[in-house]
Design a protein around this nucleic acid. Structure first.
Lengths: 164, 164
DNA sequence: CAAGATTGAGATGTCAATCTTG
DNA sequence: CAAGATTGACATCTCAATCTTG
């Protein structure tokens, strides 16, 4: 036991529960996607973001930001996705420093097939359990936290809105 | 764009913000601990849980549950902590199938030194930004979700309370 | 055999160094 | 040199197989 109290009782409860929830939820989402579609949650996120972009393509750095990933991590991940034939990469003709990541038809088929099961899992584990008021509370809380994270130098496209 | 709507607008906002928040927050916590104390967040959690247990020791499976880790992951992690001299392992005399993980003095010193900076980071990024009402809302939301996760077979000691 | 825990191989993530283009 | 991205070395996690004890 620590002598001094760093967080109030309620804060401690909220914090430990949040950490546990996040950890278990992440595992649950990963398992469902792995079992039903044989892809990781990280892969699903990348493919989904790409599938929702205009022409299903994005610059690597935008894709990284939108999927909350570091550039390095994304680069490794996309290399694997390219290997699988789900994404192709090519230097941007306008600015040759940038690279376009383009979702292939095969890649799109994968997201399309995986999405329903994933959403069902999200519904079952999260939104079916929360009242409309709680959904709004959660949205507001995360909005505030994203703002704080952005201020602290941990950027988020969801906090600042636009992409280049 | 997906044709059919799987989540309502507000749900989608809450969901994408939650995913982004969790990801950025995790990175921020890891960085602070890594820079100031040269340990990962995962390591910090394990050492903290141990430091709060009676006699600063726990069976491996209890430690795994309390730190939201799989047994395998914990086993690898504790092996590294043992290497560092922060934890020792020994077969439980009562039931020789179980293993006691015991925090060493050196290990305790590490948590003690790392805790203030970590708590300050949690305060700065989370609780300083939320109203008391929001803290309660967050606690209630995560409590509900933990219950749902437990029902779905993703156990949590925080949902079911006691440890063996 | 079941429970508790560990192990090794392979997948994935991090960090620092590097490469290319503007 | 700065920006965008990649690479390689190394750390960590996952999954399945294994080991030990009851």
């Amino acid at each position: 036991m620590t002598k001094r109290k760093w967080l109030s009782d309620r804060e401690q409860v909220a914090w430990s529960q949040l950490m546990a929830t996040v950890s278990l939820l992440d595992t649950a989402l990963d398992q469902q996607l792995q079992e039903d579609s044989d892809i990781s949650h990280a892969t699903f996120v990348i493919l989904t973001v790409l599938s929702q972009a205009p022409d299903r393509q994005l610059h690597m750095s935008d894709l990284a930001a939108l999927s909350s990933s570091s550039q390095s991590r994304l680069s490794h991940a996309v290399a694997r996705l390219e290997e699988a034939g789900w994404v192709t990469r090519s230097r941007c003709p306008v600015n040759k420093r940038q690279v376009h990541a383009q979702l292939t038809e095969a890649g799109f088929a994968v997201v399309k097939a995986a999405a329903p099961g994933h959403v069902q899992q999200v519904r079952r584990l999260v939104f079916d359990r929360l009242s409309p008021a709680q959904v709004d509370q959660l949205a507001e809380i995360t909005r505030v936290l994203l703002g704080g994270l952005a201020e602290a130098g941990h950027a988020s496209p969801l906090a600042t809105a636009e992409l280049s």
